[in-house]
Computed example of a mutant assay.
Amino acid sequence: MIPYTQEHRMLQDSLRDFLNKEVVPNIDRWEKEKTCPAQLFKMMGDQGYIGVNYPSEYGGSEMDFWSAVIVMGELSYINFGGFTGSFYAHTYLPLPLINALGTEKQKQNYLKPALLGDKIAGLAITEPGAGSDVAGLKTKAEDKGDHYLVNGSKTFITNGTIGDFVVLVTRTGPKHDMTLLLVDLASSGITKNPITDKLGWHSSDTSQLFFDNVKVPKENVLGEEHKGFYYLMNNIQEERLLMAVMASYAARFAYDKTLRYVKEREAFGKRLSDLQALRHKIADMATKLEACEAITGTAIREFIENGSAATNRITKAKIYTAETAMEIINDAIQLHGGVGYIEEFGLARVWRDVRLFSIGAGSSEIMREIIGKFEIDGVVHEKLYINSRGGVNLSA
């Protein structure tokens, strides 16, 4: 999937060594405790893994987008979906928006400490009555001259409890009139309610956030006022693309584990890998996995070349990998038999964690609607409002 360079290989090797030494030995404990280890953000920041493709003046390494693919892929492959999700929600949801839209002061106060792991970030969009339908958001920011007064609530916010700040999506007018605000989570009027009983992502911090007359200074407006909806619609393509990467690598973990198992396990006097029915199942899994990796790789290349104009391809990659990864993992559990159903073996965890991918960042049903607009209605991507690595274009 990745066109390796020496720099890419060095990044991958160093990250693997770091994860195997500092993370893998602790995963089972963190999962049982349902703990998102906040110290890992600092450790990842100190090693430079948060800012691999961000500007050097804010603590990044200025590598290409493939470096982000490597980081998210390696995290996904160690079967630690909870922290991987929290890291993803920190690094690739709010930070691209700050990088593209932020003032110098905002970048110094928020982007730089986030890339160094000194602050933990989140993106607050979803509400109790509005998920995939972003236009249905009700959290309101009332213009008070030199500040906004925010009232409303958000739910399913990753890093909402342990986070230091969020990019908050607020309504400032009718329909698509929204504004993005940088909000410090220690601000007066914010209440946090952790959500701990979840199907998967046990090591991810998830929270409800309530805003009661929260005062946000105008200097914390991210980008132009009233343009937030359009910024989000462009930025979400990077979010969906990396989710396809995560799904593909999680499926690769399950497949590799299964391939080793069927070669070692014996039944009826033969290795499982010698039984024709199981050989055919492995063949199907391998074919699906290669298709996941191929469509994701194609989408990445198109995204690198065309940014959010690659929406059609990215949407296809997101829905295909989310649903096909679940099929591969389900087959992996089946081929393992009873041990596949045992918690400590790891397949149950990856099955739970990957289930979110057909819901998060836009459900599969929404993905099909978007693809239908391109393929049936002939819709063309109208405007490129934001390039998360290269600034803003409101005139396109």
Rank of each mutant, 00 (worst) to 15 (best):
I2K: 09
Q6D: 15
D17R: 13
E22M: 12
V24T: 11
N26W: 03
D28H: 06
R29Q: 14
E31S: 01
E31R: 10
T35G: 03
A38Y: 06
A38W: 04
L40M: 13
K42S: 09
G48D: 00
G48S: 11
Y49K: 08
Y49A: 04
I50E: 03
N53E: 13
S56Y: 13
G59K: 11
E62S: 15
D64R: 09
V71D: 00
M72Y: 12
I78C: 04
I78E: 07
N79D: 14
N79Y: 02
S86A: 15
F87C: 02
Y88N: 10
P94C: 08
P94W: 05
L95R: 06
P96H: 01
P96D: 10
L97R: 02
N99F: 08
T103P: 02
D118N: 11
A121M: 03
A124Y: 01
E127M: 06
A135F: 09
A141D: 01
E142A: 15
D143F: 07
K144Q: 15
D146T: 12
Y148I: 00
Y148N: 01
N151Q: 08
N151E: 08
G152F: 05
T161L: 06
V166I: 15
V166D: 01
V167G: 01
V169M: 13
V169P: 00
P174T: 02
M178T: 06
A186I: 10
S188E: 15
G189S: 09
P194S: 08
I195Y: 04
T196P: 02
K198W: 04
G200F: 01
S204C: 15
D205M: 09
S207H: 10
Q208H: 13
Q208R: 10
K215C: 07
K218L: 08
E219M: 05
L222K: 03
E224F: 02
F229A: 00
Y231R: 05
Y231F: 07
I236A: 08
Q237D: 13
E239F: 15
L242V: 12
M243Q: 14
V245K: 07
M246A: 14
A247G: 15
S248W: 15
Y249G: 08
R252M: 14
A254E: 11
Y255I: 12
K257C: 00
K257E: 10
V262S: 05
L275W: 09
Q276D: 09
A283W: 01
E290Y: 11
E293F: 15
G297A: 13
G297Q: 11
A299N: 09
E305F: 09
N306W: 06
G307W: 05
S308W: 04
A309H: 12
N312M: 07
T315Q: 13
K318W: 11
A322H: 04
T324W: 07
E327Y: 02
I333P: 01
I333Y: 00
G338Y: 12
V339P: 03
G340H: 07
G346M: 01
A348R: 08
R349G: 01
R349A: 10
W351K: 14
R352A: 10
D353I: 00
D353W: 02
S358E: 12
S358Y: 08
G362R: 10
S364I: 11
E365G: 12
E365P: 03
E365D: 12
I371P: 03
E375R: 08
V379L: 12
K383D: 12
